[in-house]
Amino acid sequence: MPSLKAIKKRITSVKNTRQITKAMKMVSAAKLRRAQENVVAARPYAQKLGEVLERLAKSSDVEGIPLLEKRAAEKALLIVVTSDRGLCGGFNANICKAAERFLKEKKSDYSEISLLTIGRKGHDFLKNRHSIWKNHANVLSSPNYQIAALIAREVIDGFLLEEYDEVFLLYNAFRSVMSQDITLTQLLPIVPPAAEEEEHAPEYIYEPSKGELLKEILPKHVEVQVFRSLLESVAAEHGARMTAMDSASKNATEMIGKLTLQYNRARQAAITKELMEIISGAESIKG
């Protein structure tokens, strides 16, 4: 049985830990709210751009536009979005596992799969097992459109230089505070959204030509997708951290309860022992 003092010390230390996890939960909750707002705010732009793209892709000749062109898929690029910081439950582990699975399954389909990681955790995990083409760390603390555009342009450039023929994006989509969806989407070549046939599609005036417009809008589409995945991933990360910290706080409380019980028992035992000694001492004097 550990000594009273040792138990007391453990209780204090667990209490301190609980305080930290509680504080982290609060911080994550605040950050989550902001991240969620960002996700919602970005939605109309992505949606409208999608609509425009759909209309353009439907009505114009898509031949000869490189970003839409399906090439023989030999080399692929996988973009993995993780977080920069840990302590968020299975958030990073899950996405890394999904990346591993993807690499294993598709190994036979492609001659080479390169990796681009966004976020420090994914890079740390994957760099020992695979070669990383590029890494972007420390972009997730405040995801902004410029960074997303930069990454997207880099990816597009590589695609146009035929460094890879297909690009996939793997990230945690934010579903709710409790759960994240691991989402895999094909970024390039762009799969135009399935167009619904409108009955009276109005005749549009295009300026400059449709083809020109399409050429300009496609890179933007990629940028928006990258931007959205960053925002979603950040929101999911804060959600995951909040849940993890909540359960950590709960576990700490439980542990404190158990330790307090143990402490009281030990105290009781010590008192009983002392009493016994006093009584037996008194008995022996009496006798």
Partner: peptide, 19 residues
């Protein structure tokens, strides 16, 4: 300001898409 210069849009404009 569009790709081909400045333009105006009034109510009742025909469907139009420009950069």
């Amino acid at each position: 300001t569009g790709a081909l210069g400045e333009f105006g849009v009034l109510p009742g404009h025909a469907p139009f898409l420009t950069s």
